[in-house]
């Protein structure tokens, strides 16, 4: 079992968080910023499959839990975009990462000091749009009327539970304008460059070995100096 410790906020004792690591002390160490919420579940296996391939290619891979997500004991509702950014930067330092692979909304919190890749990056507004739409559709099925505008206002004021994830007001408000930014040395890897349908679209979590092969191969090529 591997752990790392995010920065303590407001003097509270820092809690350990878990990570999945293929750590053999090699020179190339890739921090993986996972997809978020429902997409995290749908892409978890794919993410690990990409890491396995990179491990075989000689790259250490480090996939930390975001505080408040997965195995984390921290309350999700307390998390903020800035807090998650700080957490990923702290993870990069603690784990001595040399590169970053950010997946979907993970691109919003990729440490800017690391070179690397944003795979199928997702903006904050699009993330919220999809989750709010799922909620309004589910509400309608249940015979309740909820509007996007009212839910957005509620989210800003008090936070909102979307798809079972309790998003606090600070994170919600930050996501309304959050766009992924490519730092120097970072590049986009669009789904069209990988080929096949994005696995986050699947109604049920699934895997696709050929997509994992291609994403890992692109990263290995790029690490070897070929254009991404």
């Amino acid at each position: 079992m591997f752990t790392w410790t995010p920065p303590a906020t407001d003097g509270t004792p820092a809690r350990e968080e878990l990570l999945v690591a293929f750590d053999r002390g090699r020179d190339l160490r890739l921090l993986v910023c996972p997809a978020w919420f429902d997409e995290a579940n749908k892409l978890r296996r794919f993410t690990i499959e990409v890491m396995r391939r990179l491990d075989r290619a000689g790259v250490d891979c480090l996939l930390p839990d975001l505080p408040g997500c997965n195995e984390s004991l921290a309350p999700l509702t307390d998390q903020t975009l800035e807090g998650w950014r700080a957490a990923m930067t702290a993870a990069a330092e603690a784990l001595r990462a040399t590169h970053v692979l950010a997946i979907r909304a993970g691109a919003l919190i990729a440490p800017p000091a690391l070179p690397g890749w944003h795979y199928a990056a997702l903006s904050g507004p699009k993330l919220l749009r999809g989750m709010i739409r799922a909620r309004t559709i589910a509400a309608r099925e249940a015979g309740i009327t909820e509007t996007t505008d009212a839910l957005m206002a509620e989210g800003r004021a008090a936070g909102l539970t979307l798809g079972g994830w309790a998003i606090g007001p600070a994170l919600f408000a930050a996501l309304e304008t959050a766009e992924p930014v490519l730092a120097p040395g970072q590049s986009d890897l669009a789904q069209s460059a990988i080929g096949g349908p994005g696995l986050w679209l699947r109604a049920e979590p699934d895997e696709d070995a050929s997509q994992a092969d291609r994403l890992a191969a692109r990263i290995v090529q790029s690490l070897a100096g070929a254009p991404a």
Binding site: D38, K126, R129, G130, M131, R133, A134, R135, I137, A138, E141, G163, W200, L201, R202, A203, E204
Partner: peptide, 14 residues
């Protein structure tokens, strides 16, 4: 059965 509200939302957004 696979097409729940989350999947439909993804479909519409796409």
């Amino acid at each position: 059965p696979e097409l729940d509200s989350m999947a439909v939302a993804g479909l519409l957004t796409e």
